[in-house]
Amino acid sequence: MISVRVNGQRFQVRAASIVIHDGHVLLHRAADDDYWSLPGGRVEIGEAASATVVREMKEELGEAVTCGPLVHVVENFFDIKGEPNHEIGFYFQVALSEGSPLVDKARSYSGLESDLRLMFQWHALLDLGSIDLRPAFLRNTLSTIPLVFSHVVHPGADDV
Rank of each mutant, 00 (worst) to 15 (best):
S108A: 11
N76L: 03
L147K: 04
H21N: 15
Y35R: 09
M57H: 03
V53C: 12
I131H: 08
F149I: 11
I131P: 01
L126H: 10
S150T: 09
V94S: 02
T144K: 15
S110M: 03
L116C: 01
V73M: 12
E59I: 10
V6S: 12
E113R: 11
S143R: 15
C67K: 04
G62A: 07
N76G: 00
R117K: 13
R139E: 02
V73R: 15
S37D: 05
G111C: 02
D22F: 03
L147N: 10
E87Y: 12
K58E: 15
P155I: 03
R134H: 11
F90N: 03
V19I: 15
V152K: 10
P146W: 07
K105I: 05
E113I: 01
R134E: 11
A30N: 07
E59T: 12
G111W: 00
H72P: 09
L118Q: 05
Q9L: 11
P39Y: 02
V103C: 09
F149C: 11
H28S: 05
E44R: 15
V74F: 06
L38V: 03
L27S: 02
P84A: 08
V73H: 13
V152Q: 09
L142K: 03
A30M: 09
L26H: 02
E75V: 05
L96R: 04
F78E: 06
D127Y: 05
F149A: 14
V71N: 01
Q93R: 12
S114R: 13
A49I: 09
P69F: 04
R5G: 10
P155N: 03
D127Q: 14
Y35C: 08
F11T: 00
S130C: 07
F77R: 15
F78P: 03
A31R: 14
Q9H: 10
Q93H: 06
G68R: 10
A30T: 06
R10I: 14
V43N: 03
R10E: 11
C67H: 02
A124H: 07
D34A: 06
D34Y: 03
F92D: 00
Y109Q: 02
V6T: 12
A15F: 10
L118M: 13
R55S: 07
V148C: 08
L138Y: 04
P69C: 04
G62D: 06
E47H: 13
A106I: 00
L96Q: 07
S100Y: 10
P155E: 04
G8V: 08
V6P: 03
S114W: 05
I145H: 13
